[in-house]
Design a protein around this nucleic acid. Structure first.
Lengths: 138, 138
DNA sequence: TTCTAATTTATAATGATTCTAAAGTAGTGT
DNA sequence: ACACTACTTTAGAATCATTATAAATTAGAA
């Protein structure tokens, strides 16, 4: 119960009640060193294995969406049928391994300054996202 | 029937029978100067308006997918619930207007050379895609 | 014209996500 | 500790886009 207090505080501070389900999902998502990329399906499978009492699929959806809304998760869509969530919410880019469908973080600093020469009148740039598709070099 | 011959040839040369439906869709998609970004839903609406005899939704899906497979269309996913097809199949980037959800082409030349400083062992780069999200500058 | 394989079509099936409304729970005040 | 209320969870139903099915139609070749 020790480590949970961090997550309980995190949840409370953003107006989310620290329920058993949310704390469990917090631990699973945020108690790691490396960033974690997952689909709802991934998450639901992990929870099914790791946990004694099942968390309803609806709750998993609800929780992930509220975490996203609170800014704890970022959603990344790399292709139509795979939408990933990313525990790294900072500004950054991605590798997508087209052989394995794995998503790998690419730090902002690892992409040499991107300059966009074209401008759209009346519009300003909100963000620039780079997706580097990689494949086996065999 | 004049202009159709180009499309009939295009279809034949890639092993697709030039049916009324395919020719109509070809004309709609490829008989333009600017590149065209559309969803299946967009396309189906346009066809519904422009055409006397309805083209079945299944046919629209089939046709777009075979055009994609033949390399006449490129699929771009900018967010989970919107997958666009692009008649510009060359290597290029995009603006996404987050106010209107409109997709705008961004030529390769309009993005200053992108250098990726990180490499993944055993993998080579397949493509680099930049998505520039823009919004009203008001 | 006739034949065959490709294509179109309406409809059913699928699968992911969202909705619903009933049951359970957290936090507050007593 | 108890009661109350709003929030949360839950199972299952509803929805929506997409894909599959299988019968009818059509293109191209003989």
């Amino acid at each position: 119960m020790e480590n949970n207090s961090i997550f309980i505080e995190k949840l409370r501070s953003s107006g989310l009640r620290p329920t058993k389900q949310r704390i469990k999902i917090c631990k699973l998502l945020f108690d790691r060193k490396k960033t974690f990329h997952f689909t709802i399906n991934d998450l639901s499978k992990i929870l099914k294995n790791e946990i004694s009492k099942k968390i309803s699929l609806a709750t998993i959806y609800n929780t992930v969406h509220s975490f996203k809304k609170k800014g704890y998760l970022k959603e990344i869509s790399v292709n139509k049928d795979k939408s990933y969530f990313d525990t790294n919410t900072s500004n950054h880019h991605h590798f997508l391994d087209i052989n394995t469908n794995e998503l790998i973080d690419l730090k902002n600093e690892d992409v040499h300054n991107i300059k966009i020469k074209k401008r759209i009148p009346g519009k300003k740039i909100n963000s620039i996202e780079v997706l580097v598709k990689i494949e086996n070099s065999n």
